[in-house]
Design a protein around this nucleic acid. Structure first.
Lengths: 173, 173
DNA sequence: TCCCGATATTTTAGGTTTCAAATATCGGAG
DNA sequence: CTCCGATATTTGAAACCTAAAATATCGGGA
């Protein structure tokens, strides 16, 4: 192959990648979204029907479960990947229900520690068991090896996205 | 191996699966969620900053794009995997912005067809291009083969979840 | 000490989302 | 034709969520 031909081919490949070549990524992303919407709606429904519980509240409790002494609102919002204001309202409602309590941080008068109440902890134990079983059923079509593969690919994808964000390249054409 | 030993082993395997054996599914699910939250927040931000557009509106427009004559609210809500009421409000606002229009269905007086306006279509074209490029960058750490593998695994996982839902077994322990 | 950028939280406004109940229409069984 | 279960949409209430601005506090340098 001549150098010119090679260059033309490169150019075409590049152009192709830039015009329609994003299809694979788009399709992958859409498929991931539709799968997660499906699973999420099931979990949401079960939490509501069996425990009168919402997913965000469950999520917050899951974060608190391993922190005996609780954690600050800020740490909660980072772990849950939601905004601060969101957590403020969520905790507000959950304090009202007796699931968590709030107390001032010892050293920092700006911060507050949130932790599960005994009631909240007890309820979470039961929900967590059920939650695990629901997931086991929903994922039962995947064997050990397939789950491992998917874990690895998701880890790689997450790194990829993090890198892109860090490089500030999400806006590049 | 004696029959007794075999039975004990089975019992242990079963017990293990029922007590701690759901860890793999839970971890996989959490990883998928955190990845999708990361990607979603980036797309949300770019849509807002570059196009003053929200993700739900973009999503709705994407559904309408390939339906020249539009589609009913009901079909929209199914494709978007959200409730009817949600779509009602979304369309309401978007009509006000001139992005979509509504007209009665020819044969069915209960239904309405929603479709992109020329303005909406034109805006969507630009956004879709950018959206594809953002995804390409975010997923750039995955090669062709890895994306194919992930597509296949997600397809399998989705089937698995659909089956579980159809069998009504999400509540089984 | 005083100041100032950083951090923790709340507040405000608006949009999104769900569920459940209500309304309107369809389409077929009798 | 009439009735009735199914379907399409809307409405209302409550929760969730975000972005941006406001408030309070921290902690270190001048």
């Amino acid at each position: 192959m001549t150098l010119l031909a090679q260059n033309l081919l490169d150019a075409e490949t590049k152009a192709h990648e830039h015009e329609d070549g994003h299809q694979a990524q788009l399709r992958l992303w859409l498929r991931l979204l539709s799968f997660s919407a499906l699973v999420e709606s099931q979990i949401r429904r079960r939490l509501r029907e069996d425990y009168r519980m919402t997913l965000p509240r469950f999520d917050l409790m899951a974060q608190l479960e391993r922190a005996e002494d609780g954690m600050t609102l800020n740490e909660l919002s980072k772990r849950m990947m939601v905004t601060n204001g969101n957590v403020t309202g969520l905790v507000e409602r959950m304090v009202g229900e007796g699931l968590v309590d709030r107390r001032p941080a010892p050293k920092d008068r700006r911060a507050q520690f949130v932790r599960l109440t005994p009631l909240g902890r007890q309820l979470f134990q039961r929900m967590a068991g059920a939650h695990g079983r629901w997931l086991a059923v929903l994922f039962s079509g995947l064997d050990e090896k397939e789950m491992e593969t998917m874990m690895a690919l998701l880890a790689k994808a997450k790194l990829s996205a993090r890198d892109a964000v860090a490089r500030g390249e999400v806006e590049i054409s």
